[in-house]
Amino acid sequence: MTARLQVRGLRKSFAGRPVLAGVDLDLHARESLVVIGASGTGKSVLVKCLLGLLVPEGGSIRLDGQELVGADRRTWEAARARMGMLFQGGALFDSLPVWRNVTFALTAGRRIETRAMRARAIAELARVGLEPQVADLRPAELSGGMQKRVALARAIAARPEILFFDEPTTGLDPILADAIDRLILDQVRALGASALTITHDLDSVRRIADRVAMLAEGRVVWTGTVAALDAPGHSLVEQFVRARPVTRHDPSPVQRG
């Protein structure tokens, strides 16, 4: 099976300093892939390249076989229409009420169909555990965790086929994090989307990942299933797994590989 999103040799540097130095990665249809890696290794940069927000210096990104690196604006627009993104910082539009944020992609930012869109926004907010009252607030009036959930609702509102989540559960309490993880998984299992999630939270990794990829020194140095995470045979992955306390989600104690 060829991947829905196929990344080969992707390179990106800032001011001559390489951040991505040949990333190879596949995201299959109906797959939940989690990317882990130390802070500052270029996880967010990778996702921004996949969305065309940053222009890579080299390599290839294929969406269902179609090359996106060096593609024209229309090709990218068509590709992005199939994608959704939760930004690490939320990136909510602070000039708009929460509900207009949530339905933004549905109307391409036009202020139309007010009644229907508002109802839709309230339904989407409920999915991320937010009350209807939140709909009329401004993003600045929300707590950090609420902003993150609104941003998540906005990213999935248009039901894109390919979803990128940049640290969706950072800053949320464990119960909420669990609910958000289930929502992400629901997009994949029930709606058939492909999800690429960046997270530092090992509990989340175990809950949502079909496969895990580790980014280090500008490359994907390890990929494997969640089960393989406990005996990865790679020192960096092992450090990542062992740095976290063993939790009840662990099927077995961490072993030395």
Binding site: E77, A91, F93, A105
Partner: peptide, 21 residues
Amino acid sequence: AEIATMKVTEQLDALVTLRTD
């Protein structure tokens, strides 16, 4: 100020990912 704030808080990037030019 408005556009610059949107730029540095990634709201411009978000616009693009939300099917808006």
